[in-house]
Design a binder for these strands. Structure first.
Length: 163
DNA sequence: AGTCCACGCCGCCAGG
DNA sequence: CCCCTGGCGGCGTGGA
């Protein structure tokens, strides 16, 4: 089962047969609830393995609009449910709370922006929904244990240096 | 370095 | 009885 899921997620990661792979991953969603962080797979795809369609769509939409208001009340209103219920469903299906999921989505967006663009940290922060470069920096340190600039430098220096 | 405040989480209870 | 849903209150966390 674990191997199957790894395969599925690998397929997703390679963007090959993503639809089938996502279906498999979705069926095995319970195995996605692991305690540790640092999954080798991207947060947007992993979080879109939710069973409930509304949650899945909400995550997908949020991943595409990281700079908008993604507060819990705002998310709840978007799907027509209460904040309480949304929190409960996130916990049940994804193993994490809404705010944490949003944080992961934004972090992922920032990672991509740092790698694929030359935008300044202020702009990266703004585009990815972080209030400021400082907020972005703190989030990076918390989740990845590196500063945004250090993260970017790692890639401009060459991937062989990344661990 | 310390304080304050807004936000978010979740246990619990109630109603459908 | 079970599941879904929402409100409330206390508590923890992190940004200002």
């Amino acid at each position: 089962v674990s191997a199957g899921m790894d395969l599925a997620l690998a397929l997703i990661e390679e963007d090959l047969g993503a639809e089938v792979a996502l279906a498999v991953a979705r069926a095995m969603v319970m195995y996605l609830r692991r305690p540790g962080d640092q999954s080798q797979y991207s947060a947007p795809l992993r979080l879109q393995a939710a069973e409930t369609p509304s949650v899945r769509e909400l995550v997908a939409w949020a991943a595409e609009h990281p700079a908008t208001d993604l507060s819990v009340p705002a998310l709840a209103q978007r799907v027509g449910k209460s904040a309480r219920h949304l929190t409960r469903v996130f916990r049940k299906e994804l193993g994490i709370a809404p705010a944490e999921a949003i944080e992961q989505l934004r972090l992922e967006a920032a990672r991509r922006a740092l790698q694929q663009s030359a935008a300044g940290l202020d702009e990266v922060a703004a585009r990815c929904g972080f209030g400021s470069a400082e907020v972005l920096r703190r989030a990076f340190l918390r989740a990845l244990h590196v500063t945004p600039s250090a993260y970017r430098a790692r890639f401009s220096a060459g991937k062989e240096l990344a661990s």
